[in-house]
Structure formats: structure tokens, C-alpha cells
Amino acid sequence: MDYLTLMGFGPDGWGWSMLRAAAMTLSVAIGGYVIGVVLGCIAAAASFSGLVPVRSVAGAYSTVMRGVPDILVIYLFYFGSGQFLAALADLAGHDGFITIPAFVVGILAIGVVSGAYQMQVFRGAVLALNKGEIEAGRACGMGPALLFRRVVMPQALRFAVPGAGNVWQLVLKESALISVIGLVELMRQAQIGAGSTRQPFSFFLTAAALYLLITAASGRIFAWLELRAMRGVRRAA
């Protein structure tokens, strides 16, 4: 069978399956990214805390998650969640084996790993703020919440856009690793197709092309976001 029929949308074509799998990849990546942003915010806030233990926990989280291979974290979540749930069920007097769907495990694992990177992006963005503005806000009598909402956040978000774009690219590529725990996203679908047609190169090449398409398109979106965020910022020529 030639390549176009193989990847086409005919009765024997794998086109729809591959596109559906790409949609799955996108949803896992978006879900993981959102969790990462939330965790990153919390961890970044913790890293500015006045309490030493809070700061150290945030630092340890970031160091460990950035220093350990992502796939190891995915294994931990996949096998660990079963163990954790079994222990919970045991406490509740329930007996039997419960598993969390691979989709949820994948999103959680990606979220926890990307949160560690996102934290550094947010930290950098807050540190890039002009100290004088924060002092001026305080001098005007703003409380911490108002200061954050009116002065810190709007500007920090602007500085965070490029870094957040990098994290998104990372998340997108990391989502391929979820295939090892059996979720049928792009990578897993390519493996299935490769196995049943014995044309692995065609399938992995198609998967690679789809990833490239997604990364390139989302790169554009982030470039546009950056342009928008930087409106009104005066730059030295």
C-alpha cells in the first residue's frame, strides 16, 4: 500500500485515527499545561515567602522535578497512583483494585513536571519588575493583594510570555512520553499502526510531521501573544 492510501481517509486509511490521536495529544498537553501554570504560580509565590520552610519546599520541588527524567515521574505517577488508591480503598474497607485512567495520570504527571519549569518562569518575571514601582505602590498605601493585582501581575505576565511559550513547547513534546503508560495519543497511535501494517517509518514520520505542525502553529500563537503583551512598552532602539 502506498503512503497516501495508508495515511488517507479511505476505508483502509489511518488518517482519521492519526488526527484523532493528535487531538488527544493536544488535550493532554493543554490539560497538563494548565495544571503546570497553577502549580507554577503556587510554587513561585511560595518561593517569595518569608517562611524558610515554605521557600525550601518550593525550591526542592523545582530542583527535583527539573533534575529527574520526566519518564521516571510518569512511571511514579502511573504505578504510584494505583498503590496510593489501593491504600485509600483499604482504609475505607473497600477491597479490590482501582486504577486511574492513563489520561488523568498523564495530565497530572505533565502538570507536576511543567509546574517546576513554570515556577522559574514566573519567578524570573516577578524579579524582572522594577523595584521602584512596587515601592511606589506601597507608598501609595496599597495592600499586598491590591499591589499584586494592579502592579505585579499585569507586568509579570508580560515578562512571562516568552518563557511560558518555551514551557508549552516542552509540555507538547513531553506528552509523547504518556504513550509508555498506554494512553492512545499520537505516539501510541503511530505504534499501533506501525505494528498492524509493518510500516513503522511511515507512521512515525507522520506522527513527527503532526508534532511539527502543532509546535509550529503554537509557536506562532505565542509570538502573537508576546507582540500583544509588549504593546505600549518602549524599547531602546
Partner: peptide
Amino acid sequence: RGTPLLVQIYLIYYGLGQF
């Protein structure tokens, strides 16, 4: 840089055997 490393590994390990 635009594709996951895993795809690259699979392309080389599984994919090249197609030829």
C-alpha cells in the same frame, strides 16, 4: 527541535527497518 525525542528514537529504531 520541533518533534519529541521519542519520535526520533522510534523512527530510527523501528522505522529504518522498513527499508
